[in-house]
């Protein structure tokens, strides 16, 4: 469980000690009804395609993950070893819910699934990630995607 009291020590203290950024602005973008929105996933699990180099520790890069990449070819290269791995070993949807997103689109609950999704290394200071955010925003705009779900690991 990720109730803070259920995380074993010393991981609990480490999690609580992670510096959290504060932001000067509080943007809040309204949009169309959910059933009309195209959704992209941004995963902080440092996902890679099988055969690609793992993310480096502290990397501020973003990698694009085409929706067409089969889930069996997606690996998790996040640096931390203090989270469960048994879950995504058998079902990557626990960190990258691409199949669930497709099902919601098929059911008409959302308007559609983006052609491209995005992945970064969690535990990285977002102060250095402006370029990554710019690249994500440019691709979202190019694909006509208006909304993003951020998924941790």
């Amino acid at each position: 469980m990720a109730r803070i009291e259920d995380i074993p020590q010393p991981t609990r203290d480490a999690v609580l000690a992670i510096p959290c950024p504060s932001f000067e602005t509080t943007p809040f973008v309204a949009g169309r009804p959910l059933a009309e929105r195209r959704i992209a996933i941004v995963s902080s699990a440092a996902l890679i395609r099988r055969g690609d180099a793992p993310f480096a520790f502290g990397s501020a890069e973003v990698r694009f993950l085409p929706a067409s990449v089969p889930t069996e070819d997606i690996l998790v290269s996040h640096v931390s070893i203090n989270f469960d791995r048994a879950g995504f070993q058998t079902d990557v949807n626990v960190v990258y819910p691409i199949d669930r997103l497709r099902e919601l689109a098929q059911a008409g609950s959302i308007g559609g699934v983006a052609d491209t999704h995005y992945t970064v290394m969690g535990s990285t200071d977002p102060a250095g990630m402006a370029d990554a955010a710019d690249r994500i925003a440019a691709q979202l705009a190019a694909e006509g995607v208006d909304s993003v779900v951020l998924s941790p690991v």
Partner: peptide
């Protein structure tokens, strides 16, 4: 959900 499986059980 526990760290590592934010969407729940596999």
């Amino acid at each position: 959900a526990m760290l590592g499986r934010p969407l729940g059980e596999p």
